[in-house]
């Protein structure tokens, strides 16, 4: 070959250049996270400081459009937290039991059906959930409970419980499947029944995976916007009962962005900061407490 050495050299630098592009692409993800954090915080922190951190976080009155505006977001924080807790309380048992069904009990045909259902649940757009909530769950609550509108915390919890299911089911199933076969066989050989084996051996062994599914489900619930906005009532009352109309952080941001004036808008970014901090906190829990033993091989 003519000029073999110089050709190889060119090839070498060319390969290096492409490798650099690959590395930069991977690096894009870090840059994105950094830029997102930067812009949300740079926009959201100043109004929080201007209002005063405690006035903002613990104020109970949200009246951004009044002549003497008030920017307390405690009702929204509580609505978000209660919604999330409710969804976890209802969704976690259903999700884990469904995961057990998938990992241990389902005959092949039922497995396929159930798995397809979970995937569809995960794929259905959140507006469709919201619309279903608006046309079915809200009227149901209005007629069967003493609630003038039917919208509120209860409707929100019902919708969110279903929306966290795919996350909980899929990750718990993976965790249950990753339990070494010997555990199960050992337990069965010692005379434990199938259910005793599942609940006393396999679930504890898959604990960290199941816990991470719960934490991820919490993230999904607290971050959900469009489904919640259609059923929560969008009035930032302090949630005192399940039937109260509420407006969690996500719904307030999405709803108010369409008409907010300049300062009101930057306060919405302030709510975004609070939401972001919650998410970061959940991620930290996931990384430091739960993930440790889950690292995929």
């Amino acid at each position: 070959m003519n000029g073999c050495i110089s050709g190889n050299k060119r090839k070498f630098t060319y390969e290096k250049a492409i490798e650099l592009i690959f590395a930069l692409s991977a690096f894009m993800m870090i840059i994105s996270v950094a830029v997102i954090c930067f812009y949300i915080f740079i926009e959201g922190v100043p109004p929080i400081l201007k209002i005063g951190i405690s006035n903002f976080l613990f104020g109970t009155r949200w009246a951004p459009t009044f002549k003497e505006p008030s920017y307390g977001i405690l009702p929204m924080i509580l609505a978000s937290l209660f919604g999330m807790l409710g969804a976890i309380i209802v969704g976690v048992p259903i999700g884990i039991f469904t995961a057990i069904m998938l990992a241990e009990m389902a005959p092949k045909r039922i497995y396929g059906l159930l798995k397809a259902a979970i995937e569809l649940l995960a794929g259905i757009p959140s507006v469709v959930y919201g619309f279903f909530g608006l046309t079915v769950i809200v009227p149901f609550i209005r007629t069967h409970f003493k609630s003038p509108t039917g919208t509120g915390l209860l409707a929100m919890i019902i919708i969110l419980s279903v929306m966290v299911l795919p996350t909980i089911v899929n990750i718990s199933e993976t965790a249950l499947r990753a339990v070494p076969k010997e555990y199960k066989e050992g337990s069965l050989a010692l005379g434990a029944s199938k259910m005793e084996t599942v609940f006393k051996v396999m679930v504890p062994a898959a604990k960290s995976g199941i816990l991470s599914s719960v934490v991820l489900g919490m993230g999904r619930a607290i971050g959900e916007t469009m489904a919640v906005i259609m059923v929560c009532g969008n009035i930032p009352n302090m949630p005192k009962s399940l039937l109260d109309t509420v407006s969690p952080m996500t719904a307030t941001i999405a709803k108010d962005m369409s008409y907010a004036g300049p300062f009101h808008q930057s306060v919405l970014f302030g709510i975004g900061v609070v939401l972001f901090v919650f998410i970061i906190f959940l991620n930290l829990i996931l990384n430091f407490v739960v993930r440790k033993s889950l690292d995929r091989k």
Binding site: G223, T225, L282, N283
Partner: peptide, 15 residues
């Protein structure tokens, strides 16, 4: 970074 991006709620992306 990947995990963080996957966990950020869509309304934050919107903002």
């Amino acid at each position: 970074g990947t995990e963080s991006l996957a966990g950020i709620p869509s309304i934050i992306y919107g903002l």
